[in-house]
Design a binder for these strands. Sequence first.
DNA 1: CGTCGGGTTGATAACTTTCAAATTTCGTGG
DNA 2: CCACGAAATTTGAAAGTTATCAACCCGACG
Lengths: 243, 243
Amino acid sequence: MLAEQSPFAMKLGAFVSLSGDELSTMELLQSRRKKFAAGREILHQGQSKKTAYILSSGWVCSYKLLSGGARQIVDFQIPGDFLGLRSLLFRSADHNIEPVTSVEVSEVQATDLLEAFRKSPRVGTGLLWAASRDEAMLVEHLVGIGRRGAKERVAHFLLELGARLKLVQLSTPLGYACPLTQNMLADAMGLTAIHVNRVLRELREDRLATFQHGMVTIHDFDGLVAFADFDKSYLDHEGPLLK
Amino acid sequence: MLAEQSPFAMKLGAFVSLSGDELSTMELLQSRRKKFAAGREILHQGQSKKTAYILSSGWVCSYKLLSGGARQIVDFQIPGDFLGLRSLLFRSADHNIEPVTSVEVSEVQATDLLEAFRKSPRVGTGLLWAASRDEAMLVEHLVGIGRRGAKERVAHFLLELGARLKLVQLSTPLGYACPLTQNMLADAMGLTAIHVNRVLRELREDRLATFQHGMVTIHDFDGLVAFADFDKSYLDHEGPLLK
DNA sequence: CGTCGGGTTGATAACTTTCAAATTTCGTGG
DNA sequence: CCACGAAATTTGAAAGTTATCAACCCGACG
């Protein structure tokens, strides 16, 4: 009910209803603020600094590089998302994290997290839900690259992003601001930037969706959902059973 | 040190050294034995039966189906692996699990798991490690489908399987028994069975590896590693930091 | 004003699928 | 134990999708 809720609280709040106490626990988690400029690496493959972050504003991407120089973007993170949870748990990171835009994050130490769980199990529940949702998205990403055609894949991606952004009030059914370049999109979709460009043009010509000038516009939501075979159920679990 | 250790204990034991007590805790987890015939569905998308399993013998696969009928296999599980951990935590499963061969599993309830964690934090640590390793494999799978050529991808897959099987003594550097069909391989790799067949032939002709008659034979391990750009570090974390 | 990264388009090449069909292997019932 | 049918493997040829190469345009920025 607060006018100024953090995206993190908005996101978890969409899943578990949070008391005032719980909200302040979450805000407390986000007290160590930091900024990174676009392109300034946050986490590097093999790095062992054991910090995680909550993203407050801006977008980041996590990716892996192959020896040949190719890059596969594993996921994008948007405000409210948790970054580097695994790097907190393990000796060294197995992927890179880099801001897409300039970003604002809050550093989270392992101890902060444990303390938050202790004070409010529901925050832990929410995080567990978020982690599981991330894994479901990863699986869906795999399915898309493995078995969807390029056009369906991109369409599906645009819809997924929209659904995610809606949770933090950064999207409407009409569209959303999207700072990604076609190159990043390509590295995420397992395509070439050139081909992504063509696919986007086709989607535009089909009057389904437009992605231009940093703005995604959905022209025909139902049509796009049907075309992409988008089933959003993997995005909104009804909640974990363990508390 | 036991001659007859369960694959599950062997696998976790490769990561955390386990006391006799801990070993028996793990064996206790595996007391509710069950068998499934090949092809007999274990878990169905949307299903809400809240049980997980530890796989003792045989192979299973988890996959998703698209509306067009296409199938993407997300992962194969081999003896010692945990099945359906997420379906234990959440209301309903978002993927299917099906035995590849006839299998023997042990049913695990949420309460069993919590009890095991309570009795032996190290078992919990081990499971956390296993879950994280699974996620790392998922990411690597995504990278492979997105950015590796078909031949490199299949080669990489054969090496990964070998490394996983070695942990439970089902593989040597020379090769291993593999009950997968070229069709399954195709659905896992995001390729056509026909193309998988050609790729396997090429790998054989290159004297790198052979997969025939349910048997994978590695002819030139180093050559295969080099060709596939296989870096096994994502498979052997040195261990979680939280206990 | 010139450079540079991103976007756009066309032509060509490479890779993968699709379609068709023959062959082999495997599981099951007789 | 054999025979049979179904499933899996194998190969060829043609079609389709996506990548690669080459240019050009444009706006941001020093």
